[in-house]
Design a protein around this nucleic acid. Structure first.
Lengths: 392, 392
DNA sequence: TTGTACGCGTTATCAG
DNA sequence: CTGATAACGCGTACAA
């Protein structure tokens, strides 16, 4: 089954031309006579010839492929867990319908996979941009065992890589970057000297806080930060302060509340706040969080302890993850254009591949403030609404 | 910037050994002395050496990469549309916060991208399985212009391909299959002679209908099918009939209602039903749809016309797309394990690559019936519930 | 418009 | 444990 695969040489012989001519029709380069072209086309079909990318890459010194390094997401553990056990039965037809489990869906907020669909969207955008540029794309999550070997392996098979910030150790990143151009995609970590694609973090938060200030009349706000030293978070905090300052409110020098991007830590922070309440403390008018996960964690605990959102305290996030739309209450947030991020990253990368010498630049994509229940959602004057399709 | 890239030869020279020895440490094959290994490691680091996948592939005659062909999804048009216009401004720092749009999110059912997150999950599972097998993965959506060239290009750079059924013309598929093993992933279309991965379509619907019959006491059911000649749909209809027959109810020879997998067509069908109602017609007790999209279309129109679900009619779907959880009412459905589908497909593929001669087989993954509001959700005795995490 | 000849960077084979 | 040597399949100057 599937004997020795035909090569360009075989096609050439069968069509009665030289290998060069075959190469010409495959690559649509140079001029080839009608007859030659037809004969070659036919030979290709009859032989079932497919050009070897390896040979092409070796000869041409580029692979026409870009790589995408994504962080491992929570949902990954689902798959990994199942690897330990025996795989589920997959034999067709044996068990009947009585073996099909029936469950009642009691948790409308169950985890949505792949980072709240975050990275799925990045991949989609990246694949699109690669397609437009005529490139193939390879994707990998940067899992711990063998990280280095696997990443270098990818580096060896691409013309350039998009790396989500913070997913690779610095030395590995630099090793890779010595070989191929690298574009850093927003996230955590202070890499530099590479092209970078982010969103307007500061402007997004600034606008959101402005809304809280102006349209809701809230005057006491607190920023819930990420761990120190993460650029995106710092920018968001900067936007927070800017809005306050412009409103004549004194901005803190540093965030007084700090999480770690995760929902669990958000819950802990909320517990601390609730405890403080019991000891006679008071809640700020609004808690502006560094991301949605953290904000969702706050909502979890507030709901459990009877703290009403937005009546007792307004809560906002950043990202626009799926879960933020169905939380109770739905979360007001700053939405990032994830697919556009993936797309822009690959576009920047292809530009860099074309012009390796140009100096590195940072690209910031626009964001959107999305008002939902967690802030009370008074639309500011002149705001856009999002219309649903009319089904009738 | 980035001069001639170092090769294995350079590493060998610098380490004072032969290329063969370097190859040995890179591939962890054969035995190499401590000193040699150390010298080579160091040379690799100093030179920033990265092995060329092209050269490796050419010499070893395999690429250690698998390909995944996905259908184009609706959301793709978003990206494509934007390609016509000028790209959005991406210069950093220029516009301020006042340019950030603020919108009120009025449509909690807005389309979720990438096929209701369907294919994102497939990619995630496939990437995981590839990773476990030590393989890289490349992904492509099968877009129209240049389909053939691009698909053959992929075929030329992988050791095997997973193709979502119905995404490739038959002749193209066979061309590809002459070169590398192919696994067909459930969907539309009657390909054969290749390995195939699906879900227990019939059993899933059978169990669901059983629930409707037994726990809800519904006796008049109608199946809303997909276009004729799609195997998955036919299996689902078979399960539908089987459940009826077993309950002593006469099953129709063929579906009386037919959509096209899409929400829009679901709406049209519902309009037909509603019109019939006006002319003295009557609604069945339940409408069992071939997929969630179709069912969601029905819900749209029923809601708009005051037909109460589940009081006036029960509606169910198949797939378990994200939108089915947040529809009004939430949709009872048969959930497919999308990530597991991607994973299984790649596992089957690697098995096939290892044993090319074995005869083709079909693998069916288990499904889960998920009860939600659109059927009234009476849990049958002994049913599992899905617990949410306790935030307090 | 077509063909010749060489080399791309690595692995596999075989001999030390 | 180590090293020669010969492919691997294609692109690309260069010549015709």
């Amino acid at each position: 089954m599937r004997g020795p695969v035909p090569t360009l040489r075989d096609v050439a012989e069968r069509a009665g031309v030289s290998p060069t001519t075959v190469s010409r029709v495959i690559n649509a380069s140079g001029f080839v006579s009608r007859e030659a072209r037809a004969a070659i086309r036919q030979a290709i079909d009859e032989l079932g010839y497919v050009p070897s990318a390896s040979a092409r890459g070796l000869a041409s010194r580029h692979t026409a492929m870009v790589g995408l390094c994504l962080p491992v997401v929570d949902a990954d553990t689902d798959l990994a867990d199942r690897s330990d056990r025996r795989p589920p039965p997959r034999v067709p037809g044996l068990p009947g319908a009585e073996t099909v489990p029936v469950v009642v869906d009691t948790d409308p907020e169950a985890i949505i996979s792949w980072g709240g669909m975050y990275f799925g969207e990045v991949v989609r955008g990246a694949e699109f941009a690669a397609w437009e540029a005529g490139l193939a794309i390879t994707v990998a999550m940067t899992r711990a065992p063998d990280l280095e070997a696997r990443v270098l392996n990818m580096a060896g098979r691409v013309d350039g890589m998009v790396v989500v910030s913070g997913t690779l150790p610095d030395d590995l990143l630099e090793h890779v970057a010595r070989r191929v151009p690298v574009v850093i995609l927003t996230g955590l970590g202070p890499e530099s000297a590479h092209d970078r694609v982010t969103v307007r973090n500061a402007e997004g938060v600034e606008r959101l806080v402005e809304h809280l200030l102006t349209d809701h009349g809230i005057t006491s706000l607190e920023y819930v930060a990420a761990p120190e030293g993460t650029p995106d978070d710092e920018e968001r905090f900067r936007g927070f302060c800017r809005a306050l300052t412009r409103a004549g409110i004194e901005a803190p020098a540093a965030p007084r509340l700090r999480g770690d991007w995760e929902r669990g830590r958000g819950r802990e922070i909320a517990r601390g706040l609730v405890d403080g309440l019991g000891r006679g403390g008071t809640l700020p008018g609004a808690l502006v969080c560094c991301n949605d996960n953290t904000a969702l964690g706050l909502l979890d605990v507030f709901a459990a302890h009877g703290v009403r959102v937005p009546e007792d305290v307004v809560v906002t996030g950043f990202d626009g993850v799926e879960a933020a739309r169905t939380s109770a209450p739905p979360l007001t947030t700053v939405e990032q254009p994830m697919a556009e991020l993936g797309r822009a990253a690959v576009e920047v990368l292809t530009a860099r591949i074309a012009a390796p010498a140009r100096r590195a630049a940072t690209t910031s994509l626009p964001v959107t403030v999305v008002l939902r229940g967690s802030c009370g959602a008074h639309p500011p004057v002149g705001v856009d609404g999002r219309a649903g399709e009319d089904p009738a």
